[in-house]
Structure formats: C-alpha cells, structure tokens
C-alpha cells in the first residue's frame, strides 16, 4: 500500500564500502546514466542496506495494512462491497510478497525480516496505527490513504534497483483499483442520507492529517532523503509529493461536498498551489515510535496470525516431504522390477 518509511531512522546506512565493491563515484555514474542495478551487480554496501531497510519497511506496511481493513470484511454493507474489500485486502498481501521477494534479492532473509517486524524492531507506515471505527473509514483509506500511497509509489517505478522498480509497477497497477473503490464508497455515502454523509465527513476529518503525514518529514528534517535521491531510489521530495497530493485532493473533496479539516487551506494563485496548515509532527513521531492509537494492537494481531498459521506451514512441509519420499519409493520399486 505504501512507503513513507524510507525516511524513518533506525539503521546505519553508512557510506563505507568494503574492498572489491565499486567506488561510490563509479556507481553514481551508473545511476546518473539511468542504468538499472540488478541483484548480481556490484553495489555499495550502504546502497544495499538502505534498500533492504526501505523495501522491507514497505513490505511490512503492506502486510500490516491488511489489519485495519480486515476489521470491516465481515461487516461490509453489501455482498458486493464485501467481495471488493476481500479482493483489496488480498492485493495488499500480494504486495507484501512482491516486496519481500525484492528485498530477498539483496540477500535479506524472509525470516529475519518477519522477525524484525514481529519483535517491533522494524518500522511500518504510521498510518496503519489509526483505528477504523466506521465503514466510512474503509472508503477514506482507499480514497485518501491509497491515493497518497500511489503518489509516493509511482516515482518508485523508476527507481534504480530493478527488482524494486518492477515490483512497484505491479503494485501501482493494482493500487489504482484500491483508490477508486475507496472514492466510490465515500461517494455513495455522500449521495446518501444526511447521516451517511456525516459519517463520511467525520471520517475525512479523522484521516486528513495522518494521510498528509504519510509523505514523511519535511525535506529539511528527512535524514535519508539526500542519499536516496543521489542513488536514484527517491525521485521526488516528501514536501513536493505532499503538495501535489493536496492540490489534486481539494477539488475531489469539493466534488463530494466534503470539507477538509484545515482552516488555513487556501488557493495561492502566486504559487499555483494550495497553502495548507502545519502538521503535528509531535503526533507523527509519537505514532512512528510506537505510541499511536493502535500500535500494540496491530503487532499483537500480526504475531497472533503468524502463530495461528504455523501449523499450516508445518503441514505443507510434512506434505511435501511425504510426497518426495513416495516418489523415491515408487522409483526404486520400478528399478527393482
């Protein structure tokens, strides 16, 4: 669903290259020529580490992102909405898999990544630590949260690391359905009874600011952005993406007859953009560091699902072993005959 986490500090992306790796200058020259880097190519250790951090955090976000929406699968208002939501949540699981696979091409182990998520060591997008209290939140997540995700992810389709770029192309294609189905839910509520419209408005009021925070810290406070730009991983700055998102979303809200909860939101003809109010960065860092409304609940649910599924994974291994053994015994019987 989304990556903001590329800017979140938690690992050491140093600049030291061990012997035998390309010099930073030679590598940067390849990037400048817009050459894609593939798994077996030589690359600076810091590039590898930085990508593993970003791609795995992105994968975790996809997987944790299934939880707030899963909350409404059994309570979707119609069979059609339920089928759509199931398909969307299944997509998110698939996105997690594409991304874990991309990280594995860099030498990261799947078990280590999952372990880092479950132990609370790894970060995931802060947006999923907010609750989905009403059905309208499912619409708002699709329209705004997935809309912001697409804005973040489209430039990643051109990122310098081939497997990540290819995974993102696949993700973005599917994400477009997510945003439209969300807009469709919000639109249905806005065209419904006054109570339904109010549900939509309250939901947008709750999600607007957390959505803007998804783009990450201001460029001036973003510790990984500079290096990520130089490496061709990040193509457009956090603040530029956030501005674009505000500019495209304001008219959509107006179409729906909804207001956005920002008294400072105003068209600035001189800049050719909407001005908007300051974000609550204390809240952002609180949620990132584990103190959001649902951080503990999300991790517990994730670990519980993993543990409850353990017997399935074990059974698959036992099944495969028995089939392999049977194939061997049939082969030896044939030889004996």
């Amino acid at each position: 669903m989304y990556t903001q986490s590329l800017d979140l500090p938690n690992t050491d992306a140093g600049n030291t290259d061990s012997a035998g790796l390309p010099t930073e200058a030679a590598f940067l020259a390849r990037i400048a020529r817009d050459e894609k880097i593939e798994p077996q190519d030589a690359m600076p250790e810091a590039y590898r580490k930085s990508l593993i951090r970003q791609i795995s955090q992105h994968a975790h976000s996809e997987v944790v992102g299934m939880l707030p929406e899963g909350n409404w699968i059994t309570r979707a208002p119609s069979l059609k909405r339920k089928e759509i939501l199931l398909a969307k949540v299944q997509d998110e699981g698939g996105h997690g898999l594409y991304l874990y696979s991309a990280a594995e091409t860099l030498g990261a182990s799947r078990d280590d990544m999952i372990d880092a998520l479950h132990s609370g060591k790894a970060k995931y997008s802060s947006i999923f630590n907010y609750p989905t209290d009403s059905w309208a939140d499912i619409g708002t997540i699709g329209w705004l949260v997935d809309g912001a995700a697409i804005m973040n992810q489209v430039p990643l389709c051109r990122c310098s690391y081939g497997p990540y770029a290819r995974a993102m192309i696949r993700v973005c294609k599917e994400e477009s359905f997510h945003q439209r189905q969300g807009f469709d839910i919000v639109r249905a509520l806005c065209e419904g009874t006054p109570a339904q419209k109010q549900l939509a408005q309250e939901s947008v009021n709750r999600w607007w600011w957390p959505t803007l925070m998804m783009f990450g810290p201001h460029d001036s406070d973003s510790e990984h952005s500079g290096q990520a730009n130089a490496w061709g991983i990040k193509r457009i700055s956090n603040d530029d993406l956030r501005q674009t998102f505000v500019d495209v979303t304001v008219p959509q809200a107006a179409f729906l007859g909804l207001t956005l909860p920002d008294p400072l939101l105003e068209w600035n003809a001189e800049r050719g953009h909407y001005d908007f109010g300051p974000l609550d960065w204390d809240e952002f860092w609180r949620v990132v560091r584990g103190d959001g409304p649902c951080n503990a609940e999300r991790l517990n649910d994730r670990v519980e699902a993993f543990e409850k599924g353990r017997w399935v994974r074990e059974a698959a291994v036992a099944h495969a072993a028995r089939h392999a053994a049977r194939a061997v015994s049939i082969a030896s019987e044939k030889i004996a005959a």
């Binding site: 898999l97 696979s101 594995e104 290819r166 995974a167 696949r170 698959a316 099944h319 089939h323």
Partner: peptide, 8 residues
Amino acid sequence: VGSLHASD
C-alpha cells in the same frame, strides 16, 4: 514475473 517461497 517474480519469486516466492513454497514447500515444494
């Protein structure tokens, strides 16, 4: 198109 883990 990509890769995945499986038991067989």
